[in-house]
Amino acid sequence: MRGLLAGWQAWALLSALFAALTAIFAKVGVGSINSDFATFVRTLVIVGVLGALLAATGQWQAPGTVPGRAWLFLVLSGLATGASWLCYFRALKLGDAARVAPLDKLSVVMVALCGALFLGERLSALAWLGVGLIAAGAVLVAVGR
């Protein structure tokens, strides 16, 4: 089992599994409350779980040891995450989870584009075909009835 979890692929698949559960659980949870409050509750749970994980594993890092550039980009990432979650929960409140989640996954397409444009990452023609198919599939699932 340890070898299985050593690669990025296993962690990415687990991320996809938990993202799917997030959509289903959030859709049920947001049904009778304000979507922004639901996002707040979710955030408190995440902070608590991560705090416990850091304490239990001894991975806490003194904030002063984090370089300024890392702080800047982590804060920007946090702001983007918060905006994403607020939008996601609002979309789940208004729409079907099975149609909201695929549009949310257009982030895969946006990451590929931004990775190529701003980070100099290179994808093969086959990988770009996959990105295009992800985009087409997300749109078809979201608009199909």
Rank of each mutant, 00 (worst) to 15 (best):
A136E: 07
F37Y: 08
L17D: 03
V108Y: 01
A97N: 14
F118E: 10
C87L: 13
T57C: 03
T43P: 02
L119K: 00
F18P: 01
A20H: 05
R99A: 12
R99E: 11
G48Q: 09
V66C: 04
L103P: 01
A101R: 00
F40H: 06
P102K: 07
T81M: 08
A91L: 10
V141K: 01
F25S: 10
K93V: 08
C87H: 06
A23N: 11
L106E: 00
G130Y: 01
A101N: 02
Q9Y: 02
S35H: 05
W71H: 14
G7Y: 01
G31Q: 05
P67N: 07
A83D: 07
S77R: 04
F89I: 11
L44T: 12
F73W: 15
L54Q: 10
L126G: 09
G120S: 05
L17R: 05
G130Q: 03
W60P: 04
A62F: 10
V109P: 02
V49N: 07
G82M: 13
R99W: 12
S107L: 12
G95K: 03
V141Q: 08
S77K: 03
I46A: 13
L113I: 15
S77Y: 02
V100S: 01
G68F: 02
G120A: 06
A20K: 05
A127G: 03
